[in-house]
Design a protein around this nucleic acid. Sequence first.
RNA 1: GGCGACGUAGCUCAGUUGGUAAGAGUGCUCGACUCAUAAUCGAGAGGUCGUGGGUUCAAGUCCCACCGUCGCUACCA
Length: 505
Amino acid sequence: MAFVGSFYITTPIYYVNDVPHIGHAYTTITADAVARWHRLLGDETMFLTGTDEHGLKIQRSAEANGVTPQEQADVTSQRFRETWASLDVTPDQFIRTTEPRHHTATQKLLTQIKDNGYIYKDSYAGHYCVGCEAYYNEDDLVDGNCPTHERPVEWLEEDNYFFALSKMEDALRAWLDTGSVIPEGKRSEALGIIETGLEDVSISRTSIDWGVRVPWDDDHVFYVWYDALINYLTAIGFGSENDELQRWWPESHHIVGKDILRFHCVYWPAMLIAAGMEPPKNVHVHGFLLLGGKKLSKTGLTQIAPADLTEEFGVDGLRYHLLRDVSFGPDSDFSYEGMISRYNTDLANTLGNLLSRVATVVHKKCGGVGTAPNPDSPLAEAAAESYTATAQGWENITPSIALEATWKLIRQTNAYLEQHEPWKMEEGSAEVHQVMGDALEVLRIAAVLTSPGLTSSSQKIWSAIGLDGEVADQRLPAAAGWGGYPAGLDVRKGDPLFPRLKPRE
RNA sequence: GGCGACGUAGCUCAGUUGGUAAGAGUGCUCGACUCAUAAUCGAGAGGUCGUGGGUUCAAGUCCCACCGUCGCUACCA
């Protein structure tokens, strides 16, 4: 189903106090692959990621390092940018909350909310944990300490601005009823949060400077979350002369982890509604990656840098594993053994080996020159079905389903070769040309369909079967149609696309 | 405590609004093939869909209870 339109997809912006790890990589690679799929469709696509750079934690670590908060943020933000580049993640924009345009957008949105009567001033006192940047109730404390950091809390009393979240319950229910939160189980969680009753939330601080200034009161900066979320609007020009909200916002898709469901499925739409704007079209909530049953968190010990894995599996190997083995939504087990198994079976044996055997037979039986496919090939129908299911999978932002649908076609092609045994046919005969033409055509289609995930390997396949140009420049659905592979191209025999891996001890 | 999610073949997971005798991949067993990265293909074994009730002509799919796992409530993908 081809449609040309706008498609806007975002990751959360990552807090620069953190080091990029495999959890960030999962979210970001998913968004990248989906964005690449939409580019193939010809949609105007905006893929946004970036870094969240305000807040007390940044201010403190800057002080500890003897640099300014901005310098601190510059260094760590750059680290995220480099990590994404190393994983073939190609965002259209990398936003930073310290950019002037973001301050402008934040101030504009919150002023709108205030003008609509949803922000008021009140004083707040409580036990404050610096590490959490949050207040605690007496009941929550453990021996007078913060339950998370197990360190003493400070008694703080300050004037805060509050957002009247409690007034937004009905509007949020209505939004959730539109199916905006995906998958269904996560929608229930969001609904559950609302049903327990929403309290107004504090959105400003007087105790710190490192943040976006509250425009109507110089003594305050906004609490980091209430500026961070607004990045999704900043990036498309909200508050600037190049406001492109009309173009992008109706097709907005946020990809987030379930830990920040509350912010993205409750606070964020509430803010937008209060500002008189439309909430996002969809929030896609995924689960955690589990390692030996333990959550990969920034306070946990199981830190895995993406580079640790690309060294052994390659960028495509890592991307494929994250996209194929993680079912979008539930928590997912992440294991070394699982990665090895998936790499060897799907990439080395099924896809890589298909390319090898086809190239060899074309050289032995067809003089190394490809043939056009048979229009009546049974694989034509298989390819059409595969495309439909693959497209549906990407459209729904369920990469594992999309990839499984693509691989079904590749497996069917291995079976097709087995059935016809072209290696036994007479060299140069019409029948061997026909069979190999069909197989080459599948490889061409597979190169296109796998390109969102296998960014460089798909191009290698494309080139190996003699095609010019970039596979990423192909346009769907036309490029998935049967009959696109022309006769007369030189097919190259190359090194194995994905050398088999032996598990390390 | 309150709220929520999850619990389907050894493993990882699919199962749209309840409806033809439960699916895929992987693993295992047997067989075939030898063009190919000891790769590929075929066949087979393997599940009382966590437990117990209920609604229904019909439930993995809805309702209740219970068991187990995890999360939110209370920073962070």
